[in-house]
Amino acid sequence: MRAVLIWCCLAVVIAVPLAVAATSPLLAWRDPVYIAAGFAGAAALAIMLLQPLLAGGVLPGLPAVRGRRVHRWTGIALVLAVILHVGGLWLTSPPDVVDALLFTSPTPFSAWGVVAMWALFGAALLVALRRRWRIRPQVWRLAHTGLVLVVVVGSVVHAMLIVGTMGTATKTMLCLALVAATLKVVIDLRAWAAIKRRRS
């Protein structure tokens, strides 16, 4: 019963903001590439919520070992969604995206988004290099989690500052859920263990 409730809540928190974004009146005045780019951004925010829940093994039926296998695939989907988001915006308005990437944009939200993007790529790169570099697990977790915190904060501020296709209420709900899930799992997994050990 509890499992069903958790999955239902998660489905609502993810599906409702995406449904609102997919039916926004703003879409009437956007061409398909821009619509896809915007939706990829909203989808990235939704996938992001899954990441800590999968890594922490807190979802019913997906304990940590299986959860992390899914976490890797959803992580790839997240990176692809962000690439689609930025690529689609680039096609729609190249100068605005160049400004954003060079941190010369007049809109503060774009800088938060670009910082989050690079942190996300860094977090994903750490996954790819984990075996090759033979990083100590606790140090690796500290680095991955540190980058992820930048991704989450950057993405949430980015999303909240934007007047776009996502509804304010459902966007806020998704962002709050993302922050809460991230903090819960970071605390549960004691991601800072590497620092503590070094100090003692």
């Binding site: 703003l26 005045w29 956007r30 821009y34 915006l89 308005s93 605005d96 809109t107 939200f109 774009s110 500052l161 934007i162 007047v163 776009g164």
Partner: peptide, 8 residues
């Protein structure tokens, strides 16, 4: 004018 690229 409609919102685009984050702001109207």
């Amino acid at each position: 004018i409609v919102p685009a690229f984050g702001q109207p």
